[in-house]
Amino acid sequence: MKDQSYTPEAMEDPEESALLRSIARKEPYEAPEGYFEGLENRIFSLIDEADPLSAAPILSSIPKNSSFTVPEGYFEAFPERMTRLVRQETTGSRVRKLWQSRTQVWFSAGMAAAISLLIMYAAVSFGKNDPAGLEGIPTEDLMAAADVEHMDLDLLTEGMDENDLNRLRQRMRYPITEDEYTTLLNHLDAEDFESLLSEE
């Protein structure tokens, strides 16, 4: 005869389920106090003690030689090769630094030239048709013009073509100190403006 107690019907018996539900779900077994603390470490220390090689007789019997061959003289030559490489690297990095500092100077010059050019346009916009008359503009005004945040680019760049505008806008992102500006402005002339705009 078929045992009815394990049929799906019996398991779904609402009375039995209610009976089971009435029993508190409590683990009937208890582990000794502190058993789980450090269990992981205890297991791993057992693994550690039981060196897996002891259960691997074939592997253990193989001598731990390095089985890879290396071209003759490789390790004798390698340190020298590395020294050469790092020397090249150091020289290369010095050249790069020099190049970067030169670029920076060029960029500062470019920036000042761009600002001066803007001032020139500003002068034209304000009705001062003679760029030479810029000398009459107070230093504060020049510095204000150098302050990108407060400059009215639309007004200052009126009449410039799109390419020139883009180049200038690009250059305006780079900061220039007041000293740099003053120094460079004293050394730049109209040719610098031309070369600035002809440079990429």
């Binding site: 693994i47 897996p52 090689l53 259960a55 691997a56 007789p57 074939i58 592997l59």
Partner: peptide, 10 residues
Amino acid sequence: SYHHAVKKIE
């Protein structure tokens, strides 16, 4: 991981 590796190699 080392245990598994040794077992596999053996």
